[in-house]
Amino acid sequence: MDYLILGFLTGLSLILAIGAQNIFVIEQGLKKQYIFIVCLICSISDFLLIFLGIFLFQYLNHFFTPTIELVFNILLLIFLLHFIWGKIKTKVSETSFDVDSKTNNLSNIVVKTLGFTFLNPHVYSDTVFFLGNFSKSLSQVDKYYFGAGAAISSFLFFFIIGYLSKYFSKYLKSATVWKRINYLIILFMSILALTVLMEII
């Protein structure tokens, strides 16, 4: 049980950092669009990567070379720039506040969620390599507890920020507020893109 708590707290400390994936989940919550699907994809992805890292760390550690990390960073930068450009082109008048709005179809949202999840090298460094390295000396049983704790923190975090954003969205049904939110998202994503660019160069 101690390792379950340790895994929970360790996973939570890693996932609390503001990142592109978290911002995307919050945005979908505010828009009330496919929140459950987005949170579920992020949570399951983390679950798979966490246990992949915990049980295969000693093998994967040799493959995550600086070259592989560079490739992921370049792909993430391209993905972020594409997303930012899309937000810049979006007009606030096109934003719908309807719960059943389908301005973004499901396949598009799934692709974006997977992109924000698997094109981010920090997802691998946090879940696969940090947690894998951290738990490498644990016994087989303790690894299960540790991984379960980290996975639970991930599930709770994504669903809380997703549905908490949905709750607060009812106070944000204003074009002016949404314009400011859009600007903030562009600002955050631009900072993240700049950070990724600095890592590349």
Rank of each mutant, 00 (worst) to 15 (best):
H82K: 13
W178S: 02
Q28W: 00
Y145I: 06
F57N: 14
S169C: 04
D100I: 11
I84D: 02
K136M: 06
S190D: 01
F118K: 07
Q28D: 01
I78E: 00
I74W: 02
L30K: 05
T10K: 03
L12M: 13
E94Q: 10
W85Y: 13
L106M: 12
T195R: 03
I200L: 10
L76F: 15
N104R: 14
Y124E: 11
G132Y: 04
S154W: 06
L56T: 10
H62C: 03
G29S: 02
F64V: 09
T65P: 01
F130L: 13
M189R: 05
H122C: 01
N61T: 09
I50L: 14
K89L: 14
L197G: 03
L75T: 03
I54V: 15
L119K: 10
L184D: 06
F157G: 00
T176A: 10
L75P: 01
A151S: 15
C42I: 10
F129P: 06
F188V: 13
D98E: 09
N120G: 05
L164G: 14
L76D: 00
I201A: 08
I74P: 02
L56N: 13
K102G: 01
C39N: 08
D98C: 08
Y167M: 07
Q140V: 09
T10S: 09
Y144V: 14
S43A: 15
N133L: 05
D2S: 12
V25H: 03
T113P: 03
G149S: 03
T113M: 11
Y124A: 13
L12D: 00
V141S: 11
F83Q: 08
S96T: 07
L114A: 05
L156Q: 07
I185P: 01
D142F: 04
N120V: 07
L138M: 11
L60V: 13
K112T: 12
F158I: 04
F72L: 15
L172Q: 06
Q58F: 05
M1T: 12
L194C: 12
S96V: 03
I35E: 00
A193L: 03
K102P: 02
L48M: 11
Q33Y: 02
Q21W: 10
L4Q: 12
K136C: 04
Q21A: 15
F157Q: 02
F57K: 08
I201C: 12
M198T: 10
L48H: 04
Y144F: 14
K170W: 05
N22K: 10
G7Y: 01
K31T: 04
V110W: 10
K87R: 07
I160M: 14
L52V: 14
M1D: 12
F79G: 09
I37D: 06
L192G: 00
C42M: 15
G147A: 12
T95Y: 00
L76G: 03
T103K: 13
N108Q: 09
L184T: 14
Y34L: 09
I161S: 04
S154N: 07
L4Y: 13
L40K: 09
K166I: 00
V111I: 13
P66E: 06
S174D: 05
L40C: 08
S139E: 07
L76S: 06
A150K: 01
S101A: 13
V92P: 02
S96N: 03
T103M: 08
S169I: 08
L172I: 09
M189T: 10
K179S: 10
Q21V: 07
D100G: 15
H62N: 11
K143H: 07
N182C: 07
G53T: 10
L194W: 13
T10P: 00
F118R: 05
Y171T: 02
I35Y: 00
